[in-house]
């Protein structure tokens, strides 16, 4: 597999590796959920994780910015994850700094019960940025990037829960963008949204990949096909296959992948 990767690297020399996952085993207590996962995620591309429920794709995503630290008794027992050459699980790593650079958007849109403005400015406020001009500018910029500015610019001081579900999710993306991350992790960002709202978020993801490395976990294979450059297929905690999205969907090399994509199970 490594040979394959190297080959690909040669083909597209301009692609830099953003995240380098090396042989990761992950356990919740005694329960191993990831088995020897090796994966490179390329800079400024969209990587989609697909696979049936409980295959470990969300767990892998959450290890990328150490959100799994919150879960008691969970640990990486083998392997490491390198972001820009640094092992992010190393003791010397400041997890706050890591999370600033690796942002995350969750499955359920969960804006804070504050105003829209306050939501976007939250990340800046907790960093101690108080300058109103800077914050204002950042808020506008982030909302614009998240394609929400036009819709909310007149009601920035209203409660975020007055927004529709899709708008809320885009607000969460804007909130993440305001911290200026390099990588954005999205954990099934559209699973709670209707098709129209899903379409808006997908559009947004396509725009964002110009500037950010994006990793998306999705159950929706069509969605993976529409938005991702590369796709990784997980099954029972193992990375079965990963390749260019087109290749995975049209010409998968593994039988399991083909079965899953064609809807034989999952």
């Amino acid at each position: 597999m490594t040979d394959l990767q190297k080959e690909k690297k040669k083909e597209k020399g301009s692609d830099k590796i953003a995240i380098n996952i090396q042989g990761v085993d992950f356990l919740y207590g005694e329960n191993q959920v990831l088995f020897d996962v090796n994966l490179d995620i390329l800079e400024k591309k969209v990587m989609a994780f697909i696979g049936p429920s409980g295959c470990g794709k969300s767990t892998l995503l959450r290890t990328l910015n150490r959100m799994n630290d919150l879960i008691e008794d969970s640990r990486i027992s083998k392997g490491k994850i390198l972001i820009q050459g640094t092992d992010i699980h190393d003791k010397s790593v400041d997890v706050i700094e890591l999370r600033k650079r690796v942002g995350m958007v969750f499955q359920k849109s969960n804006p804070f019960p504050k105003s829209i403005y306050q939501n976007v400015a939250y990340g800046l406020h907790i960093q101690g940025i108080k300058n109103k001009r800077v914050v204002d500018q950042k808020v506008e910029e982030s909302l614009t990037k998240a394609a929400l500015w036009e819709e909310v610019k007149d009601r920035l001081n209203e409660n975020a829960y007055g927004l529709s579900g899709g708008q809320q999710q885009r607000l969460c993306i804007a909130r993440t963008l305001a911290v200026e991350p390099e990588i954005i992790l999205m954990d099934e960002p559209c699973s709670a949204l209707d098709p129209v709202a899903t379409g808006r978020v997908e559009e947004l993801i396509l725009q964002l990949r110009e500037q950010y490395t994006i990793v998306v976990v999705t159950h929706n294979m069509q969605q993976a096909g529409r938005i991702s450059d590369e796709t990784a297929f997980f099954y029972l905690g193992k990375l079965i296959e990963h390749d260019k999205t087109k290749t995975i969907f049209l010409n998968p090399s593994k039988k399991q992948t083909e079965d899953y994509i064609s809807g034989k199970f999952g």
Partner: peptide
Amino acid sequence: FRESSLALG
């Protein structure tokens, strides 16, 4: 709320 706050650094 906790998760998104932590994810924002």
